[in-house]
Simulated scan of single mutants.
Amino acid sequence: MKVVTTDLPGVLIIEPKVYGDERGFFYESFNAKAFKEATGVNTKFVQNNHSRSKKGVLRGLHYQLDNPQGKLVRVSFGEVLDVAVDIRRSSPHFGKWVAVRLSAENHRQLWVPEGFAHGFVVLSEFAEFLYKTTNYYTPSAERCIRWNDRTLNIDWQLTEEPQLSAKDQEGKSLQEADLFP
């Protein structure tokens, strides 16, 4: 596997070695030993999630204050623009974000550590999004920052207004949100 650093220390692009021929392809989407050796991250995943969304659906920016989650995310069908935002007030990168295109074709994954908000928008007709988390989903701990927060000014590469869940429509601004110290 190849690990590519981003402008946010700790947020990593993972490019697995893909073996392919005229029959199709094979790649190891996760191997704990190889992940630790390549990234330096020693973690245990406790939950796998899978969502399917249509073009223009934007999910995020989500995080949990209690029981914070690190996430290893990937796309098995279609393409998304995946975004991670540093929301640790003590970080020199507080309020900064990175965006990475993840698709079934490029096989890329993104490691989003604890202390970051996460979201994605679907660029293809449909996308299937898979992610592993380092902690269990805790509804009472979940928080959401507004996708279009003016302080963050994220370029979601949208051509029209996104489709949002009721929860995401109620997201708070970065200034109003409960954040990590």
Score class of each variant (00 low, 15 high):
3 V>S: 03
3 V>P: 00
4 V>H: 13
6 T>G: 10
9 P>V: 04
10 G>A: 09
11 V>S: 05
14 I>H: 07
17 K>S: 14
17 K>E: 14
17 K>R: 12
19 Y>T: 09
20 G>F: 07
24 G>F: 13
25 F>A: 05
28 E>M: 06
28 E>H: 10
29 S>L: 03
32 A>M: 10
33 K>F: 13
34 A>E: 15
40 G>K: 10
43 T>Y: 01
51 S>W: 05
52 R>Y: 04
52 R>E: 13
52 R>M: 13
53 S>N: 12
54 K>A: 11
55 K>C: 11
58 L>Q: 02
58 L>K: 09
61 L>I: 08
62 H>I: 03
63 Y>E: 11
63 Y>C: 11
65 L>D: 00
74 R>W: 12
76 S>Q: 03
77 F>W: 06
77 F>V: 14
78 G>P: 08
81 L>H: 03
82 D>P: 01
85 V>Q: 05
88 R>L: 08
89 R>G: 02
92 P>W: 11
92 P>R: 04
93 H>R: 07
96 K>W: 03
103 S>H: 02
103 S>M: 02
108 R>N: 07
108 R>Y: 13
111 W>P: 00
111 W>C: 01
116 F>C: 11
117 A>S: 12
123 L>I: 07
123 L>P: 00
124 S>K: 04
130 L>W: 08
133 T>A: 15
135 N>V: 00
136 Y>Q: 07
138 T>D: 10
139 P>A: 07
140 S>I: 06
144 C>H: 06
146 R>L: 14
147 W>R: 07
147 W>D: 09
147 W>P: 10
150 R>E: 15
152 L>M: 09
153 N>E: 11
154 I>W: 10
156 W>P: 06
156 W>H: 07
159 T>N: 12
159 T>V: 12
163 Q>H: 12
167 K>G: 06
167 K>E: 02
168 D>S: 02
169 Q>G: 09
169 Q>H: 02
169 Q>R: 14
170 E>W: 01
171 G>P: 00
172 K>Y: 04
172 K>V: 02
176 E>D: 15
178 D>H: 02
180 F>E: 00
180 F>Q: 00
181 P>R: 06
